[in-house]
Design a protein around this nucleic acid. Structure first.
Lengths: 192, 192
DNA sequence: ACAACTCGTTCACTAAAGTTAAGAAATGCG
DNA sequence: CGCATTTCTTAACTTTAGTGAACGAGTTGT
């Protein structure tokens, strides 16, 4: 499991054995059961998550309804906005499946960044990449219809269609569950 | 004008006079006329922009139609995804108004980051903040209707309503210009 | 001054999403 | 296993966005 992490890191910086051991000694690998709520609305947190296995989702509860806005799967990193802004969280984070997560603390990161400037460089590059990627996702979302978004999702993250409940996918696509059902039926009709 | 920049930077790191002079000597301040295209689709670029005055917009041309996806105004920073991914740009960047911009080059940033680790820290923190802010914007977009998005925009960026043409605002809101017209009429009707 | 364009609005019509409700299928739990 | 809950689908109806066309106001260029 650590190999997956160091394989990921090696795309950004080369770590020495000493540095790898420093990371391992932080004891940041965690197994988390499906359904576990990692972060609640209103809660303050300093934790960031890196998914080694499984899937976590973020969702808001608005007018008593869950609105799922993102899914994080293998090799995805999530630092909730509340960690950055140091304010109570606006949303929930929970495990959709049994997960193996790397959970880090922002205080800890400050120490690591001072000790290993390499690490800070990696975080900067990673943030910049995520920002660019998310920008493109947002732009695609804005410039396409719900149907196109769904087809785009089938194309780009087919695994989500399988592992995520429809009603969560629906809000991820910015529509109601009934509309997703209908839209899927419409697509099937067109094909056959 | 430089004061605005250093005022912004001081929120993240404290610069010495020497460091400030180093930045000024880079000669990165530019006046740009309204309508200037800073980046074209298909073009490779290493430039990032920081808006000191004016407004720039990013847009795609899809099926011959302009789709505006973002506006950057005073104290906003834009690093186009193509700069990060080192691939040809998917979109255009142009000046909506006469602008004073800080234009930096990613090669230059590498040098600066090595010389002044402080600067890299600032870039990391800034990226993390922008990522979190954009995440919230995206979530709000997903969880609201076009009408709510418009009202939200009036609330949060009232200046845009004034300085940006309607048809550009429309695609920014993910709808057609006609729908924005109608939606505005609907809102006025409800009020009075 | 005039033609050509752009921009915003309006209208009639079509298509698609929201809403409400009902029921079938799958899942979880005692 | 069987009951309850959740999840997914379908349907009828309402609301809203997309489409194509037309119009007037404002701009640009000659």
């Amino acid at each position: 499991m650590q190999d997956a992490l160091f394989g990921f890191i090696s795309k950004y910086v080369q770590l020495t054995e000493e540095e790898k051991n420093a990371i391992i000694s932080l004891d940041i690998f965690h197994s988390v059961k499906k359904g576990t709520v990692l972060l609640q609305e209103g809660q303050k947190s300093k934790e960031s998550y890196f998914v080694l296995k499984g899937c976590i989702r973020t969702y808001y509860v608005l007018d008593g309804e869950e609105k799922t806005t993102a899914f994080y799967t293998e090799m995805d990193a999530l630092t909730p906005p509340c960690v950055v802004s140091k304010t109570p969280s606006e949303y929930y984070v929970s495990c959709l499946e049994d997960c193996i997560l790397l959970i880090s603390n922002s205080d800890m990161e400050v120490v690591i960044n001072q000790k290993f400037p390499k690490f800070e460089t990696m975080c900067r590059v990673l943030s910049e990449e995520l920002l660019a990627k998310q920008r493109i996702d947002f732009d695609e979302f804005k410039t396409s219809s719900p149907e196109q978004r769904y087809l785009n999702l089938v194309e780009k993250r087919p695994d989500l269609i399988q592992r995520v409940p429809q009603h969560q996918l629906a809000s991820y696509l910015g529509i109601k569950p009934q509309s997703l059902s209908r839209l899927r039926a419409r697509i099937l009709e067109k094909k056959g």
